[in-house]
């Protein structure tokens, strides 16, 4: 909504992520069954749903951490199942993930954490890697003296930022954010929202964001997909979803917490 160009998402745009008929289950019970979803290049997609509707499962399935029972996932127009090992590594390099708890390596400093993917995948001079890591850390809005700190010395908001910096290390095209603003104070959360918007603008990112933060949803998403009944119930902008006739969607987007939000 904040970017008029992105509002036309879907009309003639190419899908960077395209999943069809996803079936994912654990212990014989399907969490996702026949789910279709597309993420268009350059958009910020918010994914919402009640607890246990499989938001995180969907995210993990798309990035290949969960096993699928059925369906196809295509990333950048390439079917993951048909891709060779080498192609998968190449595709994986174009994805960045911000895990819910940050998942920073606890025995490495922030700088080393961000440098890990670059050292692992590229043959760059060590000095350049350090500089680039520092660049990403500052781009993620951390002061430069955070570089030498260990994850245990960081606050919750700083961990999210450091983790985002690591997700951005290889200049990915798509970043997956799992509840990026959960546990942040309103100021920190608003700053994080702005950071994501700014990064989308400068780096041309596509963002897949699982969130429950209504403010984030209004502020930065171009489109919201609502999960329920093991598939995508409905998708659209915040405004559009306010008028959807479905009990859960109505309760979510017209509930007491959504009432006072000012839509742009």
């Amino acid at each position: 909504m904040s970017d008029p160009a992105a509002q036309q998402a879907g009309n003639g745009r190419d899908a960077v992520i395209s999943a069809r008929g996803l079936q994912v289950g654990f212990g014989g019970k399907f969490i996702l069954d026949g789910l279709d979803i597309d993420v268009w290049r350059g958009e910020i997609l918010g994914v919402v749903g009640g607890s246990g509707t499989g938001k995180s499962v969907l995210l993990r399935t798309i990035i290949g951490l969960n096993h699928r029972q059925g369906g196809t996932v295509a990333l950048f127009g390439q079917d993951i199942d048909a891709a060779s090992q080498q192609e998968r590594v190449q595709i994986g390099r174009r994805l960045g993930v911000l895990f819910q708890q940050g998942a920073l390596f606890s025995s490495l400093t922030v700088l080393e954490n961000v440098a890990v993917p670059m050292r692992e995948h590229l043959h760059l001079p060590s000095e350049l890697v350090d500089e680039l890591a520092r660049l990403k850390i500052e781009l993620a809005g951390l002061p430069s003296d955070a570089c030498g700190k260990y994850p245990s010395e960081l606050s919750g908001g700083m961990i999210k930022r450091a983790s985002l910096a690591r997700a951005l290390a290889l200049d990915p095209d798509v970043v997956f954010l799992d509840e990026p603003t959960a546990g942040l104070d309103p100021i920190g959360a608003a700053e994080f929202d702005q950071l994501i918007l700014k990064l989308r603008e400068t780096l041309g990112l596509t963002v897949f964001m699982v969130t429950h933060d209504l403010d984030s949803l209004v502020e930065i998403t171009d489109r919201i997909a609502v999960l329920g009944n093991k598939k995508v119930l409905v998708d659209g902008t915040f405004k559009e979803l306010k008028s959807v006739d479905h009990p859960w969607v109505d309760a979510y987007f017209n509930g007491p917490r959504a009432e006072h939000l000012i839509l742009k």
Binding site: E131, R134, L135, L139, S144, D145, G148, K198, T202
Partner: peptide
């Protein structure tokens, strides 16, 4: 234009060398 935004974003970063 996209390269310009990127260059502008990078310009103020990593000013002082790390201790």
């Amino acid at each position: 234009p996209s390269a310009r935004t990127l260059l502008a974003a990078v310009e103020p970063l990593a000013e002082k060398p790390l201790p």
